[in-house]
Simulated scan of single mutants.
Amino acid sequence: MSLQVRLFGWLHCPSMAMLIVAAIMLGIMPVFPEPHLLEKLRMLMHGQLVRPIDMFDLLWHGWPLLWIALRLLTPGAAGYCRVRT
């Protein structure tokens, strides 16, 4: 078993469909007045992301997208998901 599989195998445990649903739901909620993820990214681009709650919001609403990106960057670990019981 390679080091990459041992280090990044856990990224492939949830199904891609579940990650996509989480990314859509957390990315667009709340819809009104604008999606949180867009608001926080706009704040980041303008240098206004300074409060800890805003930083947490960016992390919370963006983690599924980050997970999907990391999963796509580690194809060698695909199919290896070992959950110990």
Score class of each variant (00 low, 15 high):
L72Q: 10
E34T: 06
W60Q: 04
A69W: 11
L19Q: 03
G27E: 02
A69G: 14
M1H: 05
P75Y: 03
M1T: 13
R82L: 14
E39I: 08
W10T: 01
W63Q: 03
L59A: 04
E34R: 02
G79V: 04
R84T: 13
R51S: 13
H12S: 12
L73E: 01
I24K: 00
M45L: 15
F56D: 01
M43P: 03
L66F: 14
E34A: 10
R71L: 11
G9N: 01
I20N: 05
M25W: 11
T74M: 07
H46Q: 15
P75G: 03
G62M: 01
I68N: 04
M29T: 10
T85V: 13
H46E: 14
R71V: 06
R6S: 15
A22G: 08
I68S: 06
P30H: 05
M16Y: 11
P35Y: 03
L66R: 06
R6T: 15
A77S: 07
V50I: 15
L73Y: 05
R42Q: 13
G47M: 14
R71Q: 06
V21W: 08
C81L: 02
G27D: 02
C81A: 00
M43F: 00
W60S: 06
I28Q: 08
A23E: 01
K40H: 12
R84N: 08
M25F: 12
L19P: 00
M55L: 15
M16G: 12
R6H: 15
E39H: 11
E34P: 00
G9H: 01
W10F: 15
I28G: 09
S2T: 15
S2V: 06
L26T: 05
G27K: 03
R84Q: 10
Y80R: 08
L11R: 02
D57S: 10
A22T: 06
M45I: 12
H36Q: 13
V21T: 11
